[in-house]
Computed example of a mutant assay.
Amino acid sequence: MSLCIAAGGKVIALVASSFTLSWSHSTAHTEWWERWEVTAEGLRPVEARILGAGAGMEPPPDAVLKADGWHYRPDLPPQREVFLAASGATGGGWRLCVDEDCRTLGTTEGEPLRLWQADACGADG
């Protein structure tokens, strides 16, 4: 199964059973981190961490504070596709990692990044 990424007019395919996303909020510069599974039903968020809170970024009520931030399990079903907005205001974009293979996406303002799972990735997924 592949994790498909549409960014900058290109489609990238990564063989993956899971991946992580991390980014900094554009206003509060608070670090966010999520781990997702790539399943036959879609992309499923399974774990998340917020380093701090503020400006509409409060951790959910069931979050647990640990040394590296607030930890929680997102309550979302598998998603057929995920869109990531690229505002250009964060200075760093999104960091997507599959195992040790990490890449930065969405560092400049533009059309949204699109993620989905497929056996073979195509632009129309």
Score class of each variant (00 low, 15 high):
H29D: 11
G52S: 15
H29V: 01
V64A: 12
L113S: 08
D124I: 00
L105S: 05
T27K: 08
G91L: 06
C102K: 04
R44T: 13
C121G: 07
G52F: 03
A28S: 15
R73V: 15
E37T: 04
A123F: 13
L65I: 06
G93S: 03
F83G: 04
V64L: 11
C102G: 11
R49F: 02
W32Y: 14
S17K: 13
H71F: 01
S17M: 00
A13G: 13
G125W: 11
E109S: 12
W70S: 10
E34A: 02
T90I: 01
S18E: 15
L115D: 02
G56R: 05
V15E: 15
A48Q: 00
A6C: 06
V46P: 06
V46W: 12
G52P: 06
P59E: 13
V98F: 11
T20H: 01
M1Q: 11
A55H: 06
V82Q: 08
F83V: 04
R35F: 03
P60M: 05
L115T: 03
A6L: 13
D75N: 14
A55E: 01
E31R: 15
T90G: 13
V98K: 02
D75H: 14
I12S: 10
R80F: 03
G69Y: 05
C102M: 08
D75R: 15
A53K: 14
A6Y: 05
H25R: 07
D119Q: 11
L65N: 02
V98S: 07
H25A: 08
T27Q: 14
C4I: 11
L84T: 08
G42L: 09
A63S: 14
E31C: 08
T20G: 12
E100F: 12
F83K: 04
W36G: 04
C102T: 10
E58C: 08
P78A: 15
R44S: 13
D119W: 00
G110Y: 00
T107I: 13
P59F: 09
L115Y: 03
M57K: 00
S18W: 06
S26Q: 02
W70V: 08
R103C: 03
S87Y: 13
F83Y: 15
T90P: 05
P59T: 10
V46T: 10
V64N: 01
S26E: 07
E34D: 01
A53V: 10
R44F: 04
A85I: 11
C97G: 10
A86Y: 00
W70Q: 09
A28N: 10
Q117T: 14
S17D: 14
L84Y: 10
S24R: 15
R80V: 10
